[in-house]
Amino acid sequence: MPSTKEIRGRIKSVKNTRQITKAMELVAASKMKKAQQNASSGQAYAALLAEVLANVSGRIDGIEHSFFEEREVKTRGILVVSTDRGLCGALNSNLFREILKIQGDAKYVTIGRKAVQFVSRNKLDLLAEFSVPDEVPYLQVKQIVEFMIEKYEAGEIDTIEILYPRFVNTLIQEASFGKLLPISNLDDMINSLRGKDAEPYRENIDDRKIKFEPDPATILSSLLPLFVNREAHQALLNARASEHSARMVAMKSAKDNATTLLDGLTLQFNKARQAAITQEILEIAAATSSNG
């Protein structure tokens, strides 16, 4: 049996750990609240934008734009959204498992330190790495997306996809792919953005030809980049909500584990102390009886 001194040492270290994890839980909880709010307020906009585009893409005959053009996919372009720091459960490893499943050629652009580490460790083709602060400024996301669009137009990559931990609720985050380019079937995207409570999206009944003011080319040239940028931004906000939720849950269970451990150790400590006292009394009693 370990001595009381050893146990006391362990109790101290476990208490320290619990304090730290508790603090981290609180920090993550407040960040989570904000991130979840950000993600949900942007959702309506992203959904409507996708809806507008779905309406448009169904009605343009004879208008060509490189964003709609489906070419043979030789190299996929994947934007991986990970976290900068660890201690957030299986969030990043779930993403990386998806990457390992990918077959065929793919080039990667990463956000967050964890993804860079993974991509370079596995000797995958890394185009660029970015780091985005916690508030996810729109302009910064735009730069990243524009970089990828450039590669897309140059033919270096044939798709732009985004791999991120999609926020389902505080306890569940799913690693999922979102396809940004080429713009094809938008229904799934719209439905996932709308959430499961809303009525499912359906194609509008009005089938008259759409009129563009001033003209289709002008509208599409500003609407399409806006769409890609905004959808990417929304995915990033969503990923941030996932990150902080996962971290809070991980820290909460770490704290709970520390508490359980501490209870066990305290019990052990008390037993050891009691045993030492009993031992001492026995010794004194034995000494007195042998003298008398």
Binding site: V52, N55, V56, D206, K209, K211, E213, P214, I219
Partner: peptide, 9 residues
């Protein structure tokens, strides 16, 4: 109501 489909900036 009844406006033709329109997309504008």
């Amino acid at each position: 109501t009844g406006h033709i489909p329109l997309l504008t900036e």
